[in-house]
Design a protein around this nucleic acid. Structure first.
Lengths: 109, 109
DNA sequence: TTGTTATTCAACCAAATGGTTGACGATCCC
DNA sequence: GGGATCGTCAACCATTTGGTTGAATAACAA
């Protein structure tokens, strides 16, 4: 996949589980076990997802004692964000799009 | 992959060939054959890429005679764009990010 | 009609992805 | 030390992805 940063970022964002993890981390930093809790899949699977997010630079992980804390690293989203801005026709804060977003990306709560 | 629109859009954007196609179409509408020309891969492969972009709603294809014209459909990027805006820390037009973008996504010209 | 150009379809292939389970390494607590 | 907890690693599996080639379809041109 040529593995430039943009590839990694978009690929990471293409999975709904990973987007939901990002949304959770947006609220607060979390331990891996707590990230995994709401998902119907193994801890190992979540650990892999976190690895993919980390490699894309979207999150950082830091061990503190037994617990590994995950936190959002939103700077890395900028590259992708700016790439999209190239498509000039996009008007920011388009309300229609925002509704589409709420509709389709709606997290569990 | 659960196939909601956001999945399709981000997955479509995760491939450098497809991003380059989008960048080309940003300049002007193009026939499939002309889209394929600069790439070192078969026409069939490009046709598949165009199919993926179309399914994500990022482009539209319209047959006119023998030729199928591809054109950008930038509205569909909005959903993804807005999703990213959720990560509030992102400041628009961050120059550092823009340079990163130029660096890593640099199209042919 | 016959041929040429434009594009897709179908079958195939290797590699990547997203999941599983079970073993392992670290850390804390007693 | 011994045991529980936190997280990753390794091996495996099914499915998807990104490419190939060759045949099929569609539209024009002679």
């Amino acid at each position: 996949m040529m593995d430039n940063q943009l590839d990694l970022i978009f690929a990471a964002l293409a999975d709904p589980t990973r987007r939901e993890i990002l949304a959770m981390l947006l609220e607060d930093d979390m331990a891996v076990t707590d990230v995994a809790a709401p998902f119907a899949m193994s801890l190992a699977a979540i650990s892999k997802h976190l690895g993919i997010l980390a490699q894309a630079g979207l999150i950082a992980r830091e061990r503190r004692g037994r617990v590994i804390w995950c936190k959002l690293e939103p700077d890395s989203l900028r590259a992708a964000f700016v790439w999209m801005q190239g498509f000039g026709q996009i008007t920011l804060m388009d309300l229609e799009a925002f509704e589409l977003f709420l509709d389709s990306a709606d997290p569990q709560d």
